[in-house]
């Protein structure tokens, strides 16, 4: 009798937040998928939920480099934007089917990541930020000038994916709810991959690099290569987010490559909580809701966003989700 009493946790123990948190982080993909699955019910209209999904994925990809590896890239718009253009060009110019177009987007973003990372990673700290920013701006001007393919300043139009047919399943992408769940499938797959990466020896050592790069090097790691690998993998996630955004909007705007997009994703991750699994989605939701609310009654929403952002970083340096996690674990 006694042993069963020990083995089965009481109701109270099961409700213990620390125990609960342990379970949630063990099944972080499932927990994240569950929250994202009900998100459309929680927000006023589906377009906002779709943006949270796409920007959350973008922020998660950025978080791999920023929150987990400790590299402040200011050029991540390049990865998101080339993913979007790759996918958009494949559909609008080459007439490829959507699944091939997503692959083209991933190739674009991964190649960009390999190049930008390869050139920037020898530098450190602020210089790393500046080099990534400069290289991303180079890509912006390249796509801006390449009007015949990208549409230049007016953006790439005609990225039409009206419906999806996979076997017996028919999805109408004009229906925002169907579109949401179509995109969610990709995000959940990406989160599974992301979680798996964090679970690997690679995931352990990038956190070591963030903590103390010299120690990681002295332990026998090729730090340059690992940082580069982190950047390239980040390119995959950010590029997927860009490609999904192209399918979602039907156009690719040149702004997706502009440095403001890089700034947005930094804010989202800081708001949500850097180095946390679900924080980027919370940060994206907070940022986009704030934009949505304030843009309705003032044209200076960026000023308001900036002030809220400064307050947040000042009072919740761990970000919203990071602070909640710290509370629950304490």
């Amino acid at each position: 009798m006694k042993s069963t009493a020990v083995a089965t946790p009481s109701m109270w123990e099961r409700m213990d937040p620390r125990r609960l948190m342990g379970g949630v982080s063990q099944h972080r993909v499932l927990a994240s998928a569950a929250v994202l699955a009900v998100l459309p019910l929680l927000v006023p209209y589906p377009a906002l939920a779709i943006n949270v999904l796409i920007y959350g994925l973008f922020a998660a990809g950025f978080n791999l480099v920023f929150g987990y590896t400790g590299l402040l890239s200011l050029g991540h718009a390049a990865l998101f934007g080339t993913g979007a253009y790759g996918c958009g060009i494949a559909i609008a110019v080459l007439g490829l089917p959507w699944y091939a177009a997503i692959l083209v987007g991933l190739v674009f973003s991964t190649v960009s990541a390999a190049l930008i990372g390869g050139l920037a990673i020898r530098t450190r700290g602020v210089y790393f930020g500046m080099v990534t920013l400069a290289l991303a701006q180079c890509l912006y001007f390249l796509f801006y000038q390449w009007v015949s393919v990208t549409g230049g300043e007016s953006g790439l139009r005609g990225v039409m994916v009206p419906s999806i047919d996979i076997g017996p399943i028919h999805l109408d992408l004009f229906d925002p709810v169907q579109k949401y769940y179509f995109l969610l499938a990709f995000v959940v797959l990406a989160l599974m991959a992301f979680s798996r990466i964090l679970d690997s020896p690679f995931g352990a050592v990038i956190e070591g690099i963030r903590e103390n790069e010299n120690r990681a090097r002295a332990s026998g790691y090729n730090v340059w290569f690992l940082k580069w690998m982190s950047f390239v993998l980040s390119g995959l996630f950010c590029g997927l987010a860009g490609a999904l955004n192209a399918i979602h909007l039907g156009v690719v705007s040149i702004d997706s490559l502009f440095y403001t997009t890089s700034g947005t994703v930094v804010m989202m991750v800081l708001l949500g909580g850097m180095g946390t699994f679900f924080g980027p989605f919370v940060g994206a939701a907070a940022f986009l809701s704030l934009e949505d609310i304030t843009a309705n009654w003032t044209s200076h929403w960026q000023l308001i966003a900036g002030l809220v952002f400064i307050a947040c970083v000042r009072f919740f340096p761990r970000g919203i989700w990071g602070s909640i996690l710290a509370r629950l674990r304490a």
């Binding site: 798996r196 990466i197 679970d199 690997s200 020896p201 690679f202 995931g203 352990a204 050592v205 332990s219 026998g220 790691y221």
Partner: peptide
Amino acid sequence: AMVAGKNFWSRR
């Protein structure tokens, strides 16, 4: 660091 080379993507 010593074993990771061949197991770099396996589960920790």
